[in-house]
Design a protein around this nucleic acid. Sequence first.
DNA 1: CTAATAAGCAACCAAAAAGTTGCATATTAA
DNA 2: TTAATATGCAACTTTTTGGTTGCTTATTAG
Lengths: 107, 107
Amino acid sequence: MQDNVTKILKAISDPTRRELFHALVIAATALPITQVSAQFNMTRQGVTKHLKTLENAGLICIETSGRERFCKAETKPLQEVKDWLSFYEQFWDTKLDQLGAFLDQKG
Amino acid sequence: MQDNVTKILKAISDPTRRELFHALVIAATALPITQVSAQFNMTRQGVTKHLKTLENAGLICIETSGRERFCKAETKPLQEVKDWLSFYEQFWDTKLDQLGAFLDQKG
DNA sequence: CTAATAAGCAACCAAAAAGTTGCATATTAA
DNA sequence: TTAATATGCAACTTTTTGGTTGCTTATTAG
């Protein structure tokens, strides 16, 4: 389909999905889909679609117990976004610029 | 339209746009549109659309000189993404988990 | 056993996105 | 001044996305 970073970025680029993800992160505990969707002004099926996108990006994991499916946030994949950012960080970080200038001066 | 973080995330969630942005970052100097689009297997107009999306997210700035329009990367807005990530970072950082466990044990 | 609950799946819809072609316009080079 | 170059704009197509409704199925509670 598409690479990991793209999947993750696409997943978090939607505000509703960011809210959904956030709700699951702060819930700390795994929540059944109906309970998650109750917090959103949207049909359960709509929420389910978003949850699938998040799951596909590895940002949540879902496990079944009886007739319920519990969703739990997984923050680790966000590390990939941080890694992607890290390359560009050097260009915006003025402190680093100053350090560079300092080292140039010294060296 | 949409909030800043959403605009930025949407902009970088497209692989072509990430490539475009990267090309401009490593170019260091501002490049005219035709020169940018020459590096991509896409029409100039297609590239222009992507550049507009990046510009709208603040990730590039474009200035006109004669008949040419020069594009330059702006990495600073990525700070907003980093800020968004920072909240979730505590949850994936195992060192922090271990610290938490350590403190629980002590306390 | 039966009714209520939790959920999936498929079809559909509207809007947005990714890209194209065609054409007009301004600037610059010959 | 004429031709070439750099670009924008508008219209159009295809795919993706965000969301819905309707229906089926499995589990659980009375």
